[in-house]
Amino acid sequence: MDMQDREFDDVFRNKLDGFETEPSAKVWMGIDATLDEKGRKKAIMPWLSIAASVIVLVSAGILFIPKKIIPEHANKIVKVRPAQNIARPKQETGIKTPALQTETAVAPVRMKPVVHHAKKIEKIIAPVEQPTQVIAKAVPAKTNDQPVLAALPQKQQQATQPVVPGSETPLTIKPMESNNTPDQQTKPALIALQQPPVNKPTVTVSPKKHGIRNFGDLVNLVVAKVDKRKDKALEFSGDDDDESVIAEVNKGIQKIKKDRTQEDDK
């Protein structure tokens, strides 16, 4: 009673074709996990490429920009020395010192303590004194930094050279003035009340335009090229020469920002 091949096959087909049995639950778990993994990879890809391009830009910047920095630093050191000596007296007393000397002298100074004090003083002083031409020029010079610096001191120093050696003289005059102004911060504020802040706009020049002095500035530069918004995706505060502090993170939905104006007032 032999069975034909076809019949033999049919028996198997009829009995097995509709065969059903439930698989264990881990099969769906495995599918679910795999689909998750692949979905996540897709979602991450655009962010990965953005991160990668930022890294490429930054590293390209690190490779090519140092050549620019070196002359700037050299410049800085040369200019700073004489300027610092002149600036010192101003820091101690100089409120009503002839604006001509002090302001121009301050301009090239990039030494940390001096600059900080000068900045504060100047902000408040500005309204006190009649806005002289020098102030107007000197302020951008200070905040704008090197590129302008390089040009400024030469011109200014020539113009004021006769006065600069006499930087000692203001010191003698100062006691009188400084008696009147024991507190640098309160007094000018008082005066500011009496006199309308004529010069304010020039004083509060935004510190946006910097040269590149540290890593933070470099990142700022790169981010600024990519991100044209007012609040950048990532911004370092460049107030201090040596340290960079993240001042701002703007991911669109989330925004962390140090209040720059507050910081300056401190």
């Binding site: 509709g18 059903e20 049995t21 439930e22 099969v27 769906w28 599918i31 679910d32 689909l35």
Partner: peptide, 17 residues
């Protein structure tokens, strides 16, 4: 994902066979 699970459940036993 919920629909994928439903679809899976619809065919899992048959395809297991």
């Amino acid at each position: 994902r919920k629909s994928q699970e439903l679809l899976y459940k619809q065919f899992a036993s048959k395809m297991m066979g």
